[in-house]
Simulated scan of single mutants.
Amino acid sequence: MFYWVLKHLLVGPALRVAFRPEVEGLENVPAEGAAILASNHLSFSDSIFLPLVLDRRVTFLAKSDYFTGRGLKGRATAKFFEAARQLPVDRSGGRASEAALRTGLKVLRSGELLGIYPEGTRSPDGRLYRGKTGVARMALEGRVPVIPVAMIDTEKAQPPGQVIPKVMRVGVRIGRPLDFSRYEGMEGDRFVLRSITDEVMYELMQLSGQEYVDVYAASAKEALKRAGGSGGGTSAVDRPAA
């Protein structure tokens, strides 16, 4: 109930007026039933603008750090994520990765929309990076379609490190659902998982117009840090990987 109030009566109307999000492809999101929304990841605000433009609720798997922050900012962030029905997951790998997968499958088996960032973390430079295969495993095990979503200009509205977004128009482009039922029962085949993930990333590249880099975003951030640059922050699920 509070999620509905937050979206439709409190925060949502103000965001729609201020940012005037331009949306394409709303007809590609089913009115009911489970599906994965696989999005590129440019900004912290991606998890705000995507649910904002949809009639249905979207559940994202958010890194657990967002729920444990200290101070006024940390508590405010935790309350926002809780109110928005985001689920905390441990991204440390191993058993935690499997737990994140199971959490996502639970959402899908409830017939809901699950938001995933296949890159695993925000792009450090606006380019599209290699996807992690967790999206493919969830699609096959959950027997659900994957709907590619491209966020447009959200990194300009809220670059990494900027707390208050700049008021400007942003965009959301939603592609046609991708059906991977032909691979049913092959979720244990890493080559199949990579093939599915690469297909999803290709669709995201086409929708977003981003340059594609066949390197994990997390690795690119580490390289930037070693070079003395800024790698930005991290968000959402980056496991399980290939």
Rank of each mutant, 00 (worst) to 15 (best):
L52A: 03
R57P: 05
H41T: 07
G69A: 08
D55H: 12
F80N: 02
A227G: 05
V17I: 15
A157K: 03
G209L: 13
L224R: 15
A31P: 04
V17G: 08
L50I: 15
D238Y: 09
A18G: 09
G111C: 14
G171H: 11
D153E: 11
D90V: 01
T197W: 09
D46T: 09
R91G: 00
Y183P: 10
Q206W: 08
L114M: 11
Q86D: 04
V172S: 08
E27Q: 13
A227F: 03
R127G: 01
M201T: 11
T103G: 07
M1T: 02
S43V: 02
T197N: 13
Y212V: 14
K79Q: 10
G134I: 04
L50V: 15
I147M: 07
D189L: 06
W4V: 12
R176A: 14
G131Y: 04
I147K: 05
S235N: 09
F81T: 06
G126I: 06
S97I: 00
K106R: 12
S208W: 09
V170K: 00
K225F: 13
L10H: 06
D238F: 09
Y183E: 13
K225N: 14
L26Q: 14
V11T: 12
S92F: 10
L10R: 02
G115M: 05
R75T: 03
R85Y: 00
R20Q: 15
L105W: 08
A31E: 15
Y202R: 14
M1D: 05
L26A: 14
L6S: 07
F2D: 03
A14Q: 12
S47R: 02
G232T: 01
A220G: 12
K221G: 03
V5G: 08
S110C: 08
Q206V: 15
V135G: 00
M138V: 00
P13E: 04
G233S: 11
P30T: 10
S92R: 14
P145L: 10
I116N: 03
V107W: 05
F191P: 01
L72M: 10
D238A: 02
P21K: 07
A217C: 11
A157W: 02
